[in-house]
Design a protein around this nucleic acid. Sequence first.
DNA 1: GTCTATAACCTGATAGAC
DNA 2: GTCTATCAGGTTATAGAC
Lengths: 204, 204
Amino acid sequence: MPKKIIPEADTSTEEKIKTAARKVFIQKGFAATRTRDIAEEAGINLALLNYYFRSKEKLFNEIMMEKMQQFFGILLPVVNDPSTKLETKIELMVSNYIDMLSMNPDLPLFVLSEMKGQSGKIKNILPVQKITDKISFMKQLKEKRPDINPIHFLMNILGMTVFPFVAKPAFELIAATNKNQLEAILQERKKLIPIWVKAMLRAK
Amino acid sequence: MPKKIIPEADTSTEEKIKTAARKVFIQKGFAATRTRDIAEEAGINLALLNYYFRSKEKLFNEIMMEKMQQFFGILLPVVNDPSTKLETKIELMVSNYIDMLSMNPDLPLFVLSEMKGQSGKIKNILPVQKITDKISFMKQLKEKRPDINPIHFLMNILGMTVFPFVAKPAFELIAATNKNQLEAILQERKKLIPIWVKAMLRAK
DNA sequence: GTCTATAACCTGATAGAC
DNA sequence: GTCTATCAGGTTATAGAC
């Protein structure tokens, strides 16, 4: 058996550093993260981080772009699909997001925090698919409610779906529920939000 | 005319530092803020910051508690008032928040980011009014929809109202609108969200 | 109370041995 | 490729003069 040329993606040093960087950056944000934290988490030496990624910022940018694609990318295939009807799109958006955010609860706060004040820079790096009136989802909304800017409904769906994850520490603090109850409530919303959005679309 | 004993609250050195600290902390967060930034913004010397507040962390805690009260405090008088009906509460919550957030757009992301992982610590410092079933607003929701946990509607209202501010950089990036159009859309939501919430409350 | 100067520490990055 | 040791620069906090 020949020697393996391509190492396991998960066990190569470079990948170990990236895995550690994902965890630490997402948990603490760019500014509060020390390269030493990442090195320790990866079980490697600090110098290796710079050997592979040259700087903290370059490593961060790789993770950031990856996480932005994870956060926004889940939306695009759904809203762009002209073969599904509006109701189906809404159900898919909500359940896809809730499933993904349940496994990555820190993702939205990380992405939204780090995007702040950086959107100019990001625009040049990440190929951004603009949500225009040509997008299937927006067309369907406009057709159903020509009197309301479709961006409102996008805000509503994302607000109802994503905000509870962003504000989870706040809800844990002020709501008289424990963490497990809160998790159950978030799962419940996969069924409820589409019902509510449909009611909104009918509201006059 | 006697010499002024109590100096203008806004012009005392201590208040100048706090004003600067509010601005810088909210804009950049705790970790990315340097005490030098605050001193420069306040137009005073770096040493004075420690003379008045002993440390960066103590100064931050004062601002943080203040901002948490601003963020959550706007809610409590409304949801606790047994003399208003449900519809009125919803309208007040939405328009109070949108007005306040329009003037403090960075507030929610600041509070929610800095609360993360700190909620245990905060619980001991800030007197937290729990949102239980005894709160007027929750009682009214439970009465109207006994089949749904009232926290869902709180999440919906806050999600639709606050999330667009949290995600403003994202919307500016992906939505095909400029900043002024986005501001107008957010104002429009003061009228629309209560209509939608009422439709949700009827939805079966 | 306010300043300058500096201490004490921390952090990102690199040099150089293996 | 990986390590140890260390540098260079920056950051919080304080000492001490005014």
